[in-house]
Simulated assay, not measured.
Amino acid sequence: MKTLIVIPTYNERDSLPHTIESIRTWVPAAEILVVDDASPDGTGEWADEAAAADPRISVLHRTAKNGLGAAYVAGFTWALERDYAVICEMDADGSHRGRDLPQLLAAIEGGADLVIGSRWIPGGAVVNWPRNRHLLSRGANLYVNAAMGLGVGDATAGFRAYRREALAAIALDDIESQGYCFQIDMTKRVDEAGFRIAEVPITFVERELGESKMHGGIISEAMTNVARWGLERRGRQVRRLLRR
């Protein structure tokens, strides 16, 4: 299946070459789209040079840093305008390993519509995270499942593969979520559209280069939206029960 890997970047000049090299090692036939938010460190310029040397790399330049969710929506829209059967997403900072890509793609070939590379199912692992990040991520996923009942072990994960049909069924232009919240939002929409979601265990490695984009606004957005989505979901369930 023709596969595109979407990689959003902002100041990832040092790490992006390693990420692309890892993809080439483990999934050599995959094509790559770098979505750069006008990185001041020259990431976009490096990506242009890489694309000039490798026809399997494309670059989408955005004029401002408008958030992870908007970058992915731009990349997904670009992919749907072309003939890709599978669209993947992964970080540029090395935290998502190229060696885990084949098992995501195998699960798509096995019939899943969305495959999540999960840290929090048996076999999953996190390397070099401080205790507070462990607690934040695990707590966030427990909160999501308690509020929304998605039944997904790692709804906040950003290492994913989508079957084209699943992305095409989602109104991408309506998505305004960012960060962790974007991943939860996408999981919710795929689930509500009736597509099959699967998880495969991956090893998440804390970045060695660059700086984390995590901040309090991302956490606050996720907590607020998950509470609202949970109430809406439970409300629909109650209404269906009352109509029986």
Rank of each mutant, 00 (worst) to 15 (best):
T3S: 11
I7W: 04
P8K: 03
N11T: 13
E12G: 10
R13S: 06
D14Q: 04
D14E: 11
P17F: 01
H18N: 08
I20C: 05
E21L: 08
I23S: 02
T25Y: 01
W26R: 00
A30E: 07
V35S: 06
A38P: 04
S39N: 10
S39I: 12
S39W: 09
D41C: 10
G42S: 15
T43S: 15
D48T: 05
E49Y: 11
A51Q: 01
A53L: 01
D54A: 07
R56P: 01
I57L: 00
I57K: 01
V59A: 01
H61T: 07
R62M: 14
T63A: 13
A64G: 11
G67V: 13
G75C: 07
L80F: 00
L80W: 00
V86C: 10
I87N: 03
I87V: 15
I87Q: 05
C88E: 06
M90P: 03
A92W: 02
S95R: 03
G98Q: 11
R99I: 12
L101P: 08
L105R: 03
A106V: 09
L114P: 02
S118V: 11
G123T: 09
G123L: 04
A125T: 08
V127S: 09
N128Y: 14
R131K: 15
N132Q: 13
H134A: 08
L135S: 10
L135V: 14
S137V: 15
S137R: 07
S137F: 14
G139A: 05
G139R: 01
A140V: 09
A140Q: 08
L142C: 08
G151L: 10
G151S: 09
V152G: 09
G153C: 07
D154F: 02
A155Q: 00
T156F: 03
A157F: 02
R160L: 14
R163P: 04
R163A: 11
R164D: 07
A169C: 06
A169N: 03
A169K: 01
D173R: 10
I175V: 14
Q178Y: 03
G179A: 06
Q183E: 15
R189T: 12
V190R: 03
F195P: 05
F195S: 07
F204L: 10
V205I: 07
L209N: 01
G210E: 08
K213G: 10
K213C: 04
E221W: 07
M223N: 06
A227Y: 13
R234S: 14
G235P: 11
V238R: 09
L242F: 06
R244I: 12
R244W: 07
